[in-house]
Design a protein around this nucleic acid. Structure first.
Length: 430
RNA sequence: GGAGCGGUGGCAGAGUGGUUGAAUGCACCAGUCUUGAAAACUGGCAUGGGUGCGAGCCCAUCGUGGGUUCAAAUCCCACCCGCUCCGCCA
């Protein structure tokens, strides 16, 4: 959510910022509503003030056993008037809130202008792409090994789910633990274990609601399945006033992420690239506003470190305005090399949301003796575990169809160095 | 799921429908005293918003939303959350 005070003072800047993101000018409408709202509010407050005044006088009169009839008369008129302005103020407030809730964050000055991912800017690349003749796709490799089944998953749940077993299931665990250990032991994060469902207020806080409800799974009890653990991690400070010395707060967690993938029909239909449920290790920073820019660089470096340790080639891109997420001020995506597709695919997204989410969440810190200020929030995948498995399968595939296990993961695999065909009892898995 | 109890400021904890944004204690901050500290004493100490150049003034908020009333932390209704006991259960 954007700051109404800022909009009031910089309407032209708002429209300019919206235009960069392909949204028509809104300042005139917002300002009009804001003015009406405040004028109704002033009127209302005057009446309330008068009501309080008379109320006190009645109290005094009663205590002194004096007649208060004339006071009651005036009150008879004020009551309905207050009701009227209350309603008017509430409607305008609602209208303003609805508009502000649906406006995306303002892009950073360093965010390149652009329409879609074609216009993203490659910042740097890392690693050497292995020469693999006739590279197989991860799903072919996994199924051939008898360790990955989309048939079983489809039977259990439907399309866009995956079943892993044996060494591949264990590899998922190994990757997850490696990432969590690295972030907690090397990068200074606090590990959390979080609810995988959340209420509407929580989803509003991070910006998934009200605009993107169709992307979410919702239970008939009114809970939403989290589309990312950014949601619970970031909302952990919702409504709080944090002592300044407690900043920055850095959380990490591993969790499943649930996405309806509405509107992505026909895209990445095969394999694990785009599924309804995937495991992801998430990193979240809650920081002082002066520190968020530097925190984003730090966050990206933490995600990059994982890829480097796994020796997976990747590139870092600065997302353009057209590809920027709703709540993001600036975003770096990490894209890992996928031999079967002969291109880089997103494996992490690291965003600085500035005060955008904090304002929705009312998450503040104590900035002075008596002042509070909104914190800045950042989030990044570190990394998407499902896609990391894809990347390992494809980049570490060997001519015989087996998969070499990256060195750093071997301790997490009990010393195992390679994943080969396993004698499985699960007939359909092969 | 059944029965009961409860949600008030950073925490603890009062509060008879009427000058209560709310006693008191603790914590915290400033000052007095002291060589210094502690103790004691004095004062300050919620959040959001409106308005004003400003000191300030005003409004709202006692879990949330309605209602009763001239007036609600206080009465009524619904919901949410927490706790205890019973049932069920990993």
């Amino acid at each position: 959510m954007l700051d109404i005070k800022w909009i009031r003072e910089n309407p032209a800047d708002l429209d300019k910022a919206l235009k960069r993101r392909g949204i028509p000018a809104f300042s005139e409408k917002i300002l009009l509503i804001d003015e009406q709202r405040r004028s109704a509010m002033t009127e209302l407050q005057n009446l309330q003030s008068r009501r309080n005044d008379i109320s006190k006088q009645i109290g005094v009169a009663k205590a002194q056993k004096q007649d208060a009839a004339h006071l009651f008369d005036e009150m008879k008129n004020i009551g309905p008037a207050i009701k009227k302005f209350e309603e008017q103020e509430r409607e305008l407030e609602q209208e303003q809130h609805d508009i502000l809730s649906a406006l995306p964050n303002i892009a950073d000055a360093n965010t390149p202008d652009g329409k879609d991912e074609e216009d993203n800017e490659v910042i740097r690349t890392w690693g050497e792409i292995r020469k693999i003749s006739d590279p197989q796709a991860h799903y072919d490799l996994g199924e051939a090994l008898g360790l990955m089944s989309f048939d079983i998953a489809a039977k259990l749940a439907g399309s866009r789910f995956v079943w892993l077993q044996g060494s591949l299931a264990k590899l998922e665990r190994a990757v997850t633990n490696f990432m969590l250990d690295t972030h907690t032991e090397r990068h200074g994060y606090i590990e959390a274990s979080v609810p995988f469902m959340a209420n509407g207020e929580t989803l509003f806080g991070t910006g998934q609601l009200p605009k993107f409800s169709e992307d979410l799974f919702k239970t008939d009890m009114g809970y939403y399945l989290i589309p990312t653990s950014e949601v619970p991690l970031t909302n952990s400070v919702r409504g709080d006033i944090i002592p300044a010395e407690n900043l920055p707060i850095k959380f990490t967690t591993a969790s499943p992420s649930f996405r309806s993938e509405a509107g992505s029909a026909g895209r990445d239909t095969r394999g694990m690239i785009r599924v309804h449920q995937f495991t992801k290790v998430e990193m979240v920073h809650i920081v002082h506003p002066d520190k968020s820019e530097a925190a984003l660089e730090e966050l990206v470096s933490h995600a990059e470190y994982i890829l480097q340790q796994l020796e997976l080639p990747y590139q870092v891109v600065n997302l353009c305005t057209g590809d920027l997420g709703f709540g993001a001020h600036k975003t770096y995506d990490l894209e890992v090399w996928l031999p079967s597709q002969n291109k880089y695919r997103e494996i992490s997204s690291c965003s600085n949301c500035g005060a955008f989410q904090a304002r929705r969440m009312k998450a503040r810190f104590r900035s002075g003796e008596k002042q509070t200020e909104l914190v800045h929030t950042l989030n990044g995948s570190g990394l998407a575990v499902g896609r990391t498995l894809v990347a390992i399968l494809e980049n570490y595939q060997q001519a015989d169809g087996s998969i070499a296990i990256p060195t750093v993961l071997q301790p997490y695999m009990g010393g195992q160095t390679v994943i080969a065909i396993e004698n499985t009892k699960q007939a359909k898995a092969g």
